[in-house]
Simulated assay, not measured.
Amino acid sequence: MILVLNGPNLNRLGKRQPEIYGHTTLADVEARVGELARELGAAVEFRQSNHEGQLIDWVHEAAENGWQVIINPGGYTHTSVALRDALVEVEFIEVHISNVHAREPFRAHSYLSPVAKGVIAGLGTKGYELALRSFVEEVS
């Protein structure tokens, strides 16, 4: 199982700052990644929360079950040591829709990247698909 987690404000994808994040909604991302997962024979589950503790609880669930995680932590990327502490227990890929390194300086710092299997940034919502392919190809 691959758990796809989305952090704060990603429920507003397609509406919030479309000049940065595009017009694709989170439902669109889930549909595309879900279809790709079916093609690749992978099981995925999608969850989104604006609450740090909920994301941490889901990471703990992934750790207990041996699931891999694809996470777009949103703003928690730059602020959450607690989320990092949870994520060290799972294999995860960090995904960002925009190129965080080409934006405001504070966005270039991630508490999560140093403990991630990989980081995909700036490739739009296609980053989720690339992360899924990476996990599936790793076991093939």
Rank of each mutant, 00 (worst) to 15 (best):
E45A: 07
V115C: 08
P105Y: 01
V4F: 00
V139P: 12
L40H: 07
L40C: 07
T79H: 14
K126I: 15
R84F: 11
L132I: 01
W67F: 08
L5E: 00
H78R: 10
R32T: 13
I70G: 04
Y128L: 14
I56Y: 02
F106V: 02
G7E: 00
E94Y: 05
R133E: 10
V81M: 14
F106G: 04
E52A: 09
M1P: 01
Q48Y: 07
T125V: 14
G74L: 15
E137Y: 13
L13K: 00
N50M: 09
R107H: 11
F46T: 12
E104Q: 14
V44L: 04
W67V: 02
L83Y: 11
R107M: 10
V119G: 06
R38G: 03
R12C: 01
G122Y: 07
L130K: 05
H109Q: 13
G75D: 12
V115F: 14
S140N: 10
K15Q: 05
I97F: 00
N11L: 09
L130C: 09
E137V: 08
L13I: 02
E138M: 11
S113Q: 13
S110H: 06
N11E: 05
R38K: 11
L112R: 10
A37M: 08
D57V: 01
D28A: 12
L40A: 05
G41V: 13
A86H: 07
E52Y: 14
R84E: 10
G22T: 03
H51G: 09
G124H: 01
R133I: 06
R47K: 15
S134V: 12
G7L: 00
G34T: 15
F135T: 11
H96Q: 08
A86Q: 10
D28T: 07
P18M: 11
N50P: 15
L55T: 05
V29F: 04
V69A: 05
K15S: 03
L10C: 05
L123A: 06
P114R: 02
Q48M: 12
L130R: 06
V139D: 04
K126Y: 15
W58N: 05
A63Y: 03
Y128D: 11
A37C: 09
S110F: 10
T125G: 12
E64A: 02
A102H: 10
